[in-house]
Write a protein that binds this DNA or RNA. Structure first.
Length: 596
RNA sequence: GCGCCCGUAGCUCAGAUGGAUAGAGCGUCGGACUUCGAAUCCGCAGGUCGGGUGUUCGAGUCACCCCGGGCGCACCA
């Protein structure tokens, strides 16, 4: 049980006592606990007296006084309970609570922050699912990182989570890819053999002209041999298509791997067609009278579920639509035992949500069991101007380009830093700059590296390992910043839980950045105050141990270890490296700058 | 025209589900290294929270209406 839950329980009990004893009468309210904005107001604040004022028809301050009088603090956790302002109840824990908390954190280790493991709902997160017809671009990258972080977040919060990539290996775009591969392979053959005639370039819009197809074509020649020629109909090119798709899948997986993302499942759209799952899904919907025939096509009456118009599932030609496959796909997800589906889509797909939720309902599921999160676009800034993006323009920045330039950690940090439902600007001029500058991703990692560095130095130079936790030792932590940082560490499990429920990984980033800042601020100021954690080199003469406050140092080593641990947990949660050391940068100003 | 997302400091964004004096980073300006790591820290300046009306003890947060930006409105995937 975390401290926030503890204080909530105490106050809930107090309010209940007031009601039972007739101090005032009102329906039992929900007791909400938060942090006051100003730390001098206490560790936690509660506004329940304000909320009760209206139903109880009493002044909030009177209510607050009654509630405070009923607080039972059997374990003497509380140092102060004040009533402030219009009727806030401000709570301050005694210092020993924070000292004990340090022991809890160190004992929990990697599981500090984890929620209680639960069996249900089983969650399937589907994300990226970009067509396997080319490299991932920056927009895909954002969805990929957000989806991955969300999966990590929900797992840490305790949910059973599976991640999945829906591979669109059926449909017209795959034939287009096969045609492109065929053309490139024949082109390569003609280039090395004069007796061959070069193939005719496919019509514009009928193929993918990108260089990556040439790479795949070369591999095809190496591994399979000469491609089939002639009229590129689907049947003749199906082997070619399968090869091309697999090449792209491998390439995409490699890109994602560089971003520290891997999927539990790659789900093939084609398998739905081949297994008959698609036919089955439509048959079920027909039997439940959700389909009708009109104009030679088969329609899903999605308007029954709030969609603005009905949708075709089988074309006049007899070919099922992409939507039909998606219905079968989601039916399959449910059939595999997942009760809660999370789909992460690009913002341009929002019009697709009502029909998909309608399909879920038509299959007997709730609209809520299918949760669609829309990741907004990334606007690229180059030379101070927004770039027009899009495949049609042939200019889009790939994930690989970005990762190569800035590294996976910085790229991930950038995508996770903001709410995903707001558009962001990605300034290439800054991100791709060789100058590392001030970088919040590096700054945050540096907090962890610095903590590691202190511990390493204590051991290597002073022979001091992190001691075993001991409450008397922890009680030596009296610096206000030390206690304030312990409060932050205590928040981590709460932040994890709230961020998971709200689907907002960026809250972890904000929290971690704040922690790093608090730690670095403390650390730099200690030096100014001549109150360092470890004795400076100048003081390590013979017998320094007698003059140095060894217990305070040990307590601080414990404390630094807790910061290291929780920082590491948070970085891992975000999918970032937790470096133990970062090479020192040269200061550009000291190496030959001009006189001012 | 209809629908979804977004408008908070010069720029990029937080604001923990309606609370107390709206916060960071970058940028500007001024300071702090003989010392446990200066990839650091401290300080100054910078705001009618796009505008308006409403809901109530209380609104950046909720509702409605405007203004502005982005994206959708396929028998494409």
């Amino acid at each position: 049980m975390n401290l926030q839950s503890t204080i909530q329980a105490i106050l809930t009990q107090a309010v209940q006592s007031c009601l039972d004893e007739g101090d005032f009468s009102a329906p039992m309210p929900e007791v909400v606990i938060g942090h006051p904005k100003r730390p001098e107001h206490g560790d936690f604040a509660c506004n329940v007296a304000l909320a009760l004022a209206r139903p109880a028809k009493r002044k909030p301050r009177d209510l607050a006084e009654a509630i405070v009088a009923r607080i039972e603090d059997s374990e003497s956790l509380l140092a102060a309970t004040d009533i402030a302002g219009p009727g806030f109840i401000n709570i301050r824990f005694s210092e020993s609570v924070w000292h004990r908390l340090l022991g809890d954190i160190l004992a929990a280790g990697e599981s500090w922050g984890a929620g209680e493991t639960r069996e249900s709902p089983r969650v399937l997160i589907e994300f990226v699912s970009a067509n396997p017809t080319g490299p991932l671009h920056v927009g895909h990258g954002r969805g990929a990182v957000v989806g991955d972080a969300l999966a990590r977040l929900l797992r840490l919060a305790g949910y059973p989570v599976t991640t999945e990539y829906y591979l669109n290996d059926a449909g017209s775009q795959v034939q287009k890819l096969a045609r492109s591969l065929q053309y490139r392979a024949l082109e390569l053959l003609a280039a090395r053999d004069d007796s061959r005639t070069a193939p005719a370039e496919p019509a514009e819009g009928e193929w993918y002209p990108g260089d990556y197809v040439i790479v795949a074509a070369q591999r095809y020649l190496d591994e399979v041999g000469e491609p089939p020629s002639g009229d590129p109909t689907a049947g003749q090119l199906s082997d070619l298509a399968a090869f091309a798709v697999e090449q792209q899948r491998i390439s995409i997986a490699a890109t994602l791997d560089r971003l520290n993302i891997s999927f539990d499942v790659w789900f093939s759209e084609k398998s739905l067609h081949e297994s008959g799952a698609l036919t089955e899904a439509l048959a079920e919907m027909r039997s439940k009278r959700h389909l009708f025939d009109q104009d030679g096509s088969v329609w899903f009456r999605s308007t029954d579920f709030g969609d603005e118009k009905d949708r075709v599932v089988v074309r006049k030609s007899g070919e099922p639509t992409y939507f039909a496959a998606d219905i079968a796909y989601h039916r399959n997800k449910y059939d595999r035992g997942f009760d809660h589906l999370i789909n992460i889509w690009g913002a341009d797909h929002h019009g697709y949500i009502p029909r998909m939720k309608g399909a879920a309902q038509a299959m007997g599921r709730t609209a809520e069991s299918l949760e669609v999160l829309l990741v907004q676009f990334v606007a690229l800034i180059k030379d101070g101007e927004k770039m027009k993006q899009g495949k049609r323009l042939g200019q889009f920045v790939t994930v690989d380009e970005v990762v190569e330039q800035v590294g996976a950690d910085v790229a991930r940090y950038f995508f996770l830093e903001r709410k995903f439902d707001a558009q962001v600007d990605f300034d290439l001029d800054v991100a791709l700059s060789e100058d590392p500058k001030e970088n919040p991703a590096k700054y945050t990692q540096y907090g962890h590296a610095r903590a590691c560095s202190i511990l390493a130095k204590a051991e290597s130079e002073l022979g001091m390992k992190v001691p075993a936790y001991d409450l008397a030792l922890a009680a030596r932590l009296t610096h206000p910043d030390e206690l304030a940082i312990l409060r932050r560490l205590a928040d981590f499990p709460v932040i994890v839980s709230e961020a998971a429920e709200a689907r907002e990984p960026h809250r972890i980033v904000t929290w971690l950045h704040d922690l790093a800042r608090a730690f670095q601020s403390y650390y730099t100021r200690l030096r100014r105050d001549n109150d360092t954690v470890l004795p400076p080199a100048s003081q390590r003469d013979a017998g320094w141990q007698q003059r140095w406050d060894m217990d305070k140092m040990k307590a601080r080593l414990l404390w630094v270890d807790a910061i290291r641990l929780v920082s590491r947990n948070a970085l891992t949660l975000l999918g970032l490296e937790a470096p133990t050391y970062m090479t020192r940068l040269e200061d550009p100003d000291t190496s030959g700058g001009q006189d001012a």
